[in-house]
Structures are given as structure tokens and as C-alpha cells.
Amino acid sequence: MIGYGVNFRRGLASLTAAMGVLLVASFGAAAQDHRQNAPGAFDFYVLSLSWSPSFCEAARERGNTGRSTQAQCSGRPYSFVVHGLWPQYERGYPEYCKRPSPRLDRNVMRGMLDLMPAPGLVYNEWDKHGTCSGLGARGYFETVRKARASVKIPEEYLDLASPKTVTPGEVEEAFIKANPGLSAAAIAVRCDSRRLGEVRICMNKDLQFRACEQVNRSACRRNQIVMPPMRGG
């Protein structure tokens, strides 16, 4: 009986501990989920500007000939294009905040092709990120356009006719110089193994530049990167 009592108490203690873990996990999930993927409940935006020649060069190397690649890489010579305007938390980000996503009107999509040169990209950005903005489709893409208009592309990157080797710091500095109020704490340069990929700029909901520690931690750490020339260069 004594042995049985000891085993029973041990078993009860283990069960209690396990229930405690489950309760803590459930509470933690609830604490996180109170705004997880809730439309409009986020802290700031990231405007992602993709260096289109890098995207096209990498797509050719992978043999990617899909519609989005053809739309961006076989037309006019793009430089920086809008990858997206992404709602962010201070840590992490929401995505796919409405399932199914409200259908995006084709006319709205077509109206964005000057900034986001592939229909598939526009549709995907609406489904994954736009639905988290708390705005309707027209309002969201109007905000994308305003965000893009608030950032001036450095003059030396507007018509790049030959490959250019740069450091991530040089790209940051060029954008900071061209955009009063932009600081190094609000911009991050992304790269692949050798090429410039994107420039990400953090903005408040009113589209003013703001610092973003977590976005900065994912910045390119390479000493030098290449900017492939624009198509036809």
C-alpha cells in the first residue's frame, strides 16, 4: 500500500505538471493570438523595393520561366520595383488575415502594374499582406502607391547600364542621402549570395520613416554585392 501510495502521488504530480504545461502553453498562445493575423492590428509597414535585374538574373539561372517572371523580365527595363508593403509587428508579422481573401478586382490589379510589374505579384501581395492592413483593396493599393511616392530612388540607380559593385552600406547611404529624414535604423539592404536583392524601408502607418530593429537584423552582411544592369544595359 505504501508503494502504491508513492506511485499514485508521483503519477498525480506528473499529471499536474503536464496539465500546468498545457495551461501555460494555452495561455501563451492566447496572449499571442489576441491580435495575431487580425486585420489592421499591426505596428508599422515595411516597403520592400526589389532590384528587378537581380530578380530576373536569378530567375534565368533557375530556369524559371513562369508568367510572373515573363511579365517582369521580358518587357521594359525595370530598376527598383515594389515587391510589397507589409504590415509588421515589432516582432514578426501577420499574413493571410482573411481566408478566403476578398477577390481583388482586375482593374485594381491592372492599375498597379506600373509599380508591381506582374499580375501574380499583385494578387499575392493582396492575399498575403494587403488583407492584414485593415483596408479595402483600393485603399491598400492607394497606400502602396503613396508609400512608393514618398521614397526617392537615388539618381545613380535610375538608369544602370552596366554591372555595379557596391557595399550594402553604400546602398543604404545613397538612399539616406536622397531621402531626408531616413536613417540607417529605418532601412535594410537584402542580398543573395552575390547580388543586391531588395531595399526595405520601415514606415509608420502615416508613412513616415521609423526605426525597425528586427528588420535591420536580417540585413545583408556581405562585404560587396553586385547590381546587375537594367535590361538592355
Rank of each mutant, 00 (worst) to 15 (best):
Lys177Glu: 15
Phe141Ala: 12
Thr143Cys: 09
Ser74Val: 05
Lys128Met: 04
Ser74Tyr: 05
Ala71Asp: 15
Cys97Pro: 11
Gly111Cys: 06
Gly66Ser: 09
Ile153Ala: 12
Gly169Cys: 05
Glu95Ile: 00
Thr69Pro: 06
Thr165Trp: 06
Glu57Ala: 06
Ser101Met: 01
Lys177Val: 15
Tyr45Lys: 10
Thr167Ser: 11
Lys146Val: 07
Thr131Glu: 14
Tyr140Phe: 01
Ala58Arg: 15
Leu158Gly: 00
Val166Gly: 12
Gln72Glu: 13
Glu61Ala: 13
Lys128Cys: 03
Val166Glu: 15
Val108Lys: 11
Ser150Arg: 15
Glu57Ser: 11
Leu121Met: 04
Glu142Ala: 15
Glu170Gln: 15
Val81Ile: 11
Val82Tyr: 07
Asn64Val: 01
Leu85Lys: 13
Glu172Asn: 14
Asn107Phe: 08
Cys97Thr: 08
Arg67Leu: 14
Arg103Phe: 07
Asn124Val: 01
Ser150Met: 13
Gly63Val: 02
Met112Gln: 03
Val144Met: 13
Ser52Arg: 05
Thr143Gly: 07
Ala59Pro: 10
Cys97His: 09
Ala58Asn: 15
Gly75Met: 12
Asp159Glu: 01
Gln72Arg: 08
His129Val: 03
Leu104His: 11
Asp159Thr: 04
Val122Leu: 00
Glu95Tyr: 01
Pro94Trp: 01
Gly66Ala: 13
Lys164Thr: 13
Gly111Ser: 06
Glu173Ala: 14
Leu160Cys: 09
Arg67Pro: 10
Ala118Ser: 13
Val144Lys: 10
Ala118Asn: 08
Gly139Cys: 03
Asp114Glu: 10
Ser50Glu: 10
Pro168Glu: 09
Arg148Asp: 13
Tyr78Val: 07
Trp51Ala: 04
Val82Asn: 12
Pro77Phe: 11
Asn124Phe: 02
Val82His: 10
Glu61Arg: 05
Glu142Asn: 07
Gly92Met: 01
Phe141Cys: 13
Trp86Lys: 05
Phe175Arg: 06
Pro53His: 04
Gly139Pro: 04
Asp114Thr: 03
Ala137Pro: 13
Cys73Gln: 07
Arg148Gln: 12
Gly84Leu: 08
Leu85His: 14
Pro87Phe: 08
Ser48Met: 06
Gly75Leu: 12
Arg110Ser: 00
Gln72Ala: 13
Asn64Tyr: 11
Asp127Val: 00
Leu158Gln: 01
Glu95Leu: 00
Met109Ser: 14
Val108Trp: 10
Glu156Asn: 02
Leu158Lys: 01
Thr69Leu: 09
Phe80Trp: 09
Gly63Tyr: 03
Ser101Val: 00
Gly139Phe: 01
Ser52Met: 09
Arg76Glu: 15
Leu115Gly: 04
Glu155Cys: 01
Asp114Lys: 07
Leu121Cys: 05
Arg106Ser: 12
Leu158Val: 03
Lys98Val: 08
Arg110Ala: 02
Ala147Cys: 08
Leu104Glu: 11
Ser74Pro: 04
Gly120Leu: 11
Gly139Ile: 02
Lys152Thr: 10
Pro163His: 05
Pro119Val: 00
Pro100Thr: 07
Thr131Asn: 13
Ser101Glu: 02
Glu172Trp: 00
Ser68Val: 14
Glu57Thr: 04
Ala174Ser: 14
Trp86His: 07
Gly120Glu: 10
Arg106Cys: 05
Ala59Tyr: 02
Ser79Arg: 09
Asp159Ser: 07
Leu113Phe: 04
Gly66Lys: 02
Arg76Cys: 12
Asn107Ala: 15
Tyr157Asp: 02
